[in-house]
């Protein structure tokens, strides 16, 4: 975090050296666009304009080509999203096991709808297609963690834990 008016250098040195390593893995630099975006988003929380420029410069493409890639992948976010991103599966298996109720419950509890973020910046919610976790339907993914066999009670417990600062 920077102070008012101070330019915030969002891209850390650690991330920059990570970028160098990743680019070296590929015979053609532009192939590294997706992993660079993922690592960058992990650190910054979303894909910032500065990150787009930085990646374009490093892999020697124009920024618009990085933008195209971001647009293609729904897991890359061009705008800031909540600290905990609830991705509720509503595809067939989950739907048959009550996913719509889970989605509705999340909406009620968090007070937001699909692709929205809470005012405190803590939670975002979105409806997604099959997560490949059908055996544990209904399922959802929060950042990189999966939660399965969900019930409204389990969701409430999770929200409470995350609000307290748990992971």
């Amino acid at each position: 975090m920077g102070f008012r008016g101070q330019k915030i250098e969002m891209i850390s040195d650690a991330l920059k050296s990570k970028f160098d390593q990743v680019i070296a893995h590929y015979p053609s630099k532009r192939s590294a666009i997706v992993p660079l975006l993922v690592f960058g988003q992990d650190e910054i929380g979303h894909v910032s304009g500065e990150l787009v420029e930085e990646i374009a410069r490093r892999v020697e493409v124009r920024p618009i080509e990085v933008e195209e890639t971001i647009g293609f992948y729904s897991m890359l976010h061009r705008r800031p999203i909540g600290k905990h991103n609830f991705q509720v599966c509503t595809n067939v298996s989950c739907m048959l096991r009550g996913a719509e109720e889970i989605m509705a419950h999340c909406e009620r509890r968090l007070g937001i709808g699909h692709k929205q973020t809470t005012a405190d910046g803590l939670f975002s919610l979105e409806e997604v297609e099959c997560l490949g976790a059908c055996c544990g339907a209904p399922a959802m993914q929060v950042n990189y963690d999966f939660y399965e066999n969900l019930t409204p009670e389990k969701v409430d417990a999770l929200i409470a834990r995350l609000k307290k600062g748990g992971a």
């Binding site: 920024p63 618009i64 195209e68 971001i70 647009g71 293609f72």
Partner: peptide, 18 residues
């Protein structure tokens, strides 16, 4: 000049400016 790109997917695809 390369001022355009195509963003998003399938029915949501759109032409974006630079």
């Amino acid at each position: 000049v390369n001022a355009y790109g195509v963003a998003f997917r399938a029915a949501h695809s759109e032409i974006i400016p630079n």
